[in-house]
Each structure stands twice: as structure tokens, then as C-alpha cells.
Design a protein around this nucleic acid. Structure first.
Lengths: 360, 360
DNA sequence: GGCACGGCGGCAACGGGTTGCCATGTATTG
DNA sequence: CAATACATGGCAACCCGTTGCCGCCGTGCC
């Protein structure tokens, strides 16, 4: 009976296999990397010996000569934000299909951290998907010079991009609010380094122009529930009947913040978010929001990256645009008729019960 | 004026730097990896030349000889589950402090996928944190034989573990429900491959014994909102006044599922979850839940892993136990006095309006 | 029988650092 | 001043595969 309990022996290499199978190391190498280049009987024998010895090809050594690791990096802005979960899933599926491994990097909403992480990972991966990068355009271009890069949720000349049709989503949201009688919309801004933030704001301005709705902006706030609650406090000093928030987390924070101050959503204020995260369905009232095909974003970006890695030129023309849709729930309603024109009813109510909310 | 626009030149290596700085490649290597081993003036000169040439040490080549990549893998069961976000953050902080890079792997609740991913990544990283692994004990031990491993949320002999004090959390939850007058608790089980699921169930049984509360179990269900909603349907066929769910997502699903069927939480049924995810505070009623120090879990596990990588023996004795606390919100309330003993009021109500809910 | 050709396997040179060991030169010490 | 110790730097082997090129051999064709 053979002894299978080998001591902490060294890693098995092609040389060990070669010795045992009585061929040269190069043949062993080829048996795995170019099976057609070696006699099938020999290859089979080598494979069996390798199996018996427990040989595993060392990806690092392989990468050293081929400069291909079959790993790609997926950089996301904030793992705390549930939006990215589906994007990650999509990317992972595409990567797995192409027999690539995805390494996920959380930039924690920090330009600096993102650069550092990308820097470190750059030489270890064959390509990078930057999902909602907070880096500067020039920093991204620098990276793109060294490795294939696909940018998600951001348009950038000379670099392949995948974006969602935010202008259309914004337009739909504005139309929806307009139909409900709102003639003012306040945009609650997210991070300035976020590309979608700019696009959403500009698209809203444009839609407002066409639909004859007045648009204004407050912020920026952090794109989290806490940020939304802060925004709610500021909203009290500059009341509004309709609010479009940069994302769902902020929108939820706004709903809660307003609620805590006695302002009713959607009775007094209608709120629209972006992303359609799970919590949008949990919060009450349910959040009206612009939904994006997250999974498809991740997989489209990744598939494109893989073709670039395999040598395709990288489609740097127009960005690939994915459709969105407006999901109407209960956080939007017809405008509450209020006596004052620009100063809705609840604003006075609030200031009566809580004279200085912004000082809290 | 020097031409800074270099063509797609090859990667700069220590050999290039050596040539330019007029030293041997080994000196260049040492200037970076063992600065004390080389004259500080020389080292400085080398560093400057390297800077000028844009030299970056190639981590793959380095890893080939040192067999250290300064990367660790963090495997999480399901990136969709917000619990892991904080764990990831904690792990990342600890890793960054130790100058390690974290590569995140999402196992998608699948034993098979997890094994495959670990297999692929194993030789590329210096160590692994398995957070809520779905692999078998023996599979984990196999991995631990090849690389330093720390297991999170699971106790396993001979492998260093970090767990939370679930028994105490369960106990506190049971006491809480007991004080509210509940004498029956139904445990809604999560994945059987989940270690905490087993521990929570057994701890609940034990607490029930001591506190004279009857305990029973339904499930397993998928640890998601959808799973919770399915559980809610089953709860209707076997009514209960107090429910402890495997995690918050299921608990929220249960609340919503019951609500949809006209059952009031906490009026008719009290619900307790685990994890204290953000949504637990968003849902209404707010979810009473057992909170764990997620960030600390991630960082403790990672710090321990790093010491093992640096050569420490790996503390395989008792697992490290982190404290938990019960967060009481509005999903638990005094038991609704009902006529039937084991069959609360609403059960009859429901069965009148919807005779066969389990057939939907 | 002579020759061209294709299949197969080996040799050796990489890829980019790391490191044990030795040689040299300088500083320290008796 | 000789002897020893130490600080530096170079040589060369090594990590583990990959791959261009060459040679051997068997086959088929003229």
C-alpha cells in the first residue's frame, strides 16, 4: 500500500513530472499549454504522471513569460453601496465564462485609494474594469496606456466606455413629476467626482428647460443615507415639492430625514432616486427610482475588456449605452396644492414646530 | 528638449537600471528589497535612476523566487448580502496596514464555485480569509494545508477561527422575547451549509430549555428576502407569535410576507433577525436584531492571517470570539393575547380569507 | 533508392527578480 | 604595523514555466 501522506514536500514542478515521465520539461510544458504540439499518447502519459504527483501549473511562473495572468481587476467605488453587487455578479459571470478570475477592489470613494490600488494591481492583471471611477480623466488615461481598460458609468474619449442612458432616465423622471403637477425640482447632488452625478444634473436641467420645470441643485452630499439625511435638513431651509436625488441611498435618507421632521413623502414632497436598489422597495413609501440593468453593465464591460485583452482594438468611439427604466412606486404623488407659490405649506408648518432645523 | 513621449518601449527592468546606474542588477534588486544591505548613497542614486527610467518592480517576478505575493484572498459567501461590506472594509484596512493587497472573491453561496475560486487563487496569494465559507470542513482543511487560512464565522478544529458570540446573542433574543410573554419561538433556518445557522439553532434550543420557551424550526430557506417571504407563507400554515430568523434579510422578507397576508408585525408576530444590516433600520417596523461587530471581524481575522503569513504559528486553539449585542427596534412586542393557545388569533383569520396559502 | 516533408521531442535562452557566497576595500583593534 | 572585522558590491545559480529553433525519424512520393 503506497504512502499517500507525503510530508510538506516542495511544490511539484514540470521538472519533477518530466523526470518521472521520462521526457524533457519542455514537453511537459507543452502537454499542458499546447497539447496539439505533442503526441497524444505522450500527452496522456504526462497528464497521468502529473495527476499522480499532484502537479499544478504555477500561474505566476507562467505569467512571467507569457505576461498573461488570466486575471482582471474590477474596481468599484464603494462596496457598501449595493448597486455594485449586481455589477460584480455580471462581471464575474463574464469573466468566468472567459476563464478569467476577477479580483475585486473597493476604492472606498477615494481617489487616492483607488489610484494606489490600481497601481499595485496593474501589473498583476491583464485588464481592468473601472466601475464608477473617482479618478481624474488623465489618471484613467495613464492606466489605459498600460493595460486594457473599460470604464463603466463614465464617458471618456479614447477609452472604451459602458454607460447607462441616464439622460433618458432623468427625462422620464422629470416627465413623471411634471405630470404630477410639479413645476420645481430640486436635484440633490452626489460626489462631484462621480461622472453620473454631472450627467444627471445636466440632463435634468435640459429636461426642465423643455418641460418648463424649474430646476435647482443642492449639495454635494455624500452618496449615502447619512448624506441624504443631511440633505433633508438643508431641504427644510429651501423647501421643495419634488426632489431628485443622485442615488437611492440618498433618496432613502431624504425620505427618512424629512419624515423625522414631520414632512410627509409623497404628500408634501415627492422623491425620486437612482439605481433601484433592494432597499428602494423596502422603505416606506416605496421609492420611485430610475433602474439600470446592473448585471448587464458588469457583464458587458467585462466581455468587452476580454476581447481587448485577446487583442481586439477596443471600441473607443461612442460609449456603449444601456437602457434604463423608471420604476414608479409610492414616493411620488400629485403636488400638494399649497397657498404660497414657491413656499409650500409644510415649510411653514415645520418652521413653526422646529424653528432652526439646520442648527441641529 | 528631451523627448518624453517614449514609444511603446518594453518594461523597465532592474537590468536597465543597473546599466544606467553603473552597478550590477543584484545591487539594484537589493536597493529596493534590502536597502540596509547597500550603501545609502548608492541606494539613493539607484532610486533616482529608477525613478527617471520609470522602473517598477514586477511583483510576479519577485513572487517567483520569494513565493510571496503580498496579496491575500478574502472569500465571502455572497456579495449581495450587505453584511459582508463591513467585513470587507475591516479586512481591507488590516491588509492595507500590513501592506498587503486584498483580492475579494464572491462564492455566490455555492460550495462548488467557492472551491473552484479558491483553487484558482490559492497559488497567487499568501493566505486566505474564508468568511462564512460554504465548503466542507475537510475541504477547508485541505486548503489550510497549502496556505495560511483564517476562518470567519465558523469554528473548525486545527484552523484558526474568528466567530461572534452567537450563543449569547441568541440567548439575549430569547430572553427579550420571553420577557414580552412569548412562550413559543419559531426559528426560520438559513442555508444548512452555513455554520452560524447551526449554532443559532442549537443555541436557541438551549436557551429555550432554560427559559422554558418552546422552540421549533422551519426551513431551510434561502438567506434572502425572497427566502423570508417564502418562509412567511409557511409560517401561515404553522402559526407562531415569535420568530427568530437566520438573518436580517430573511427577517425583512418575513415581515413583508406576513404584512402582505394581513398579519401584523409586531402586533401578531414578533420578528428578530441577525446582523443589523442597514435595511433593518429602514424597514417598518424597524427590525429587532442581533448585531455583530462586522468591521472588527474582518480586521481581526485579517490581522491574524498576516501574523501567520509572517511566520507565527497560527492560534488554532479556541476560536477568537467577538461580542454581539441585541438591538431592539419595533418588530418585537408583547405577545398578543389570543384565545387559542397554540393557534393565535390571526391564524384563524387568515385561513378564513385565504384557505390554502401554501398552494400559491 | 533518394529526397522532401511533417510530426515530435529536446536544447537552451529567456522572463525579472532574489540570494548565498565570495572578493575587495576600509575601518577597527591589539 | 599586522591581523581581524565589517561594509559593499558582484557573480552566478535559482524560481518555474514558455518558446524559437533544430534535429531525428518515419512516411510518402517520384
Amino acid at each position: 500500500m503506497p504512502d499517500h501522506t507525503e510530508p510538506p514536500e516542495k511544490r511539484v514542478t514540470i521538472y519533477d513530472v518530466a523526470l518521472e515521465a521520462d521526457v524533457s520539461p519542455s514537453t511537459v510544458s507543452r502537454a499542458f499549454s499546447r497539447p496539439s504540439r505533442v503526441n497524444s499518447a505522450t500527452a496522456e502519459r504526462i497528464r497521468q504522471v502529473a495527476e499522480r504527483l499532484g502537479y499544478r501549473t504555477n500561474p505566476l511562473a507562467r505569467a512571467l513569460t507569457t505576461s498573461r495572468t488570466r486575471m482582471i481587476a474590477l474596481v468599484i467605488a464603494d462596496i457598501t453601496n449595493p448597486v455594485y453587487a449586481e455589477i460584480v455578479r455580471g462581471a464575474q459571470e463574464a469573466a468566468t465564462d472567459g476563464e478569467y478570475t476577477t479580483v475585486l477592489i473597493d476604492a472606498q470613494e477615494s481617489d487616492r485609494l483607488e489610484r494606489a490600488a490600481v497601481e499595485r494591481t496593474l501589473s498583476t492583471v491583464d485588464g481592468i474594469v473601472l466601475a464608477s471611477s473617482r479618478m481624474s480623466d488623465s489618471a484613467i488615461r495613464m492606466v489605459a496606456k498600460q493595460r486594457p481598460v473599460v470604464v463603466l458609468n463614465r464617458a471618456l474619449a479614447d477609452v472604451p466606455c459602458v454607460v447607462t442612458d441616464d439622460p433618458r432616465g432623468v427625462r422620464r423622471a422629470a416627465e413623471h413629476l411634471g405630470e404630477l403637477g410639479h413645476d420645481h425640482i430640486t436635484y440633490v447632488a452626489g460626489p462631484q467626482a462621480s461622472w453620473p452625478n454631472g450627467i444627471r444634473w445636466r440632463s435634468l436641467l435640459e429636461a426642465g428647460m423643455e418641460l418648463e420645470i424649474k430646476i435647482r441643485q443642492i449639495g454635494p452630499f455624500s452618496p449615502t443615507m447619512a448624506g441624504g439625511e443631511r440633505a433633508a435638513r438643508e431641504l427644510c431651509t429651501r423647501p421643495a415639492t419634488a426632489v431628485v436625488a443622485f442615488n437611492d441611498q440618498m433618496a432613502i435618507g431624504i425620505i427618512r430625514g424629512l419624515g423625522r421632521m414631520g414632512v410627509n413623502v409623497p404628500g408634501d414632497v415627492s422623491v425620486v432616486g437612482f439605481d433601484n436598489i433592494l432597499a428602494a422597495d423596502i422603505v416606506s413609501p416605496g421609492l420611485t427610482t430610475v433602474a439600470a440593468p446592473l448585471f448587464a453593465e458588469g457583464s458587458a464591460a467585462t466581455r468587452h475588456l476580454l476581447t481587448m485583452i485577446e487583442g481586439a482594438p477596443g471600441h473607443t468611439g461612442r460609449p456603449m449605452v444601456l437602457p434604463v427604466r423608471l420604476v414608479v412606486r409610492d414616493s411620488t404623488a400629485t403636488r400638494n396644492p399649497s397657498p404660497g407659490r414657491a413656499r409650500p405649506q409644510w415649510a411653514r408648518q415645520r418652521s413653526a414646530t422646529d424653528p432652526a432645523p439646520h442648527l441641529r
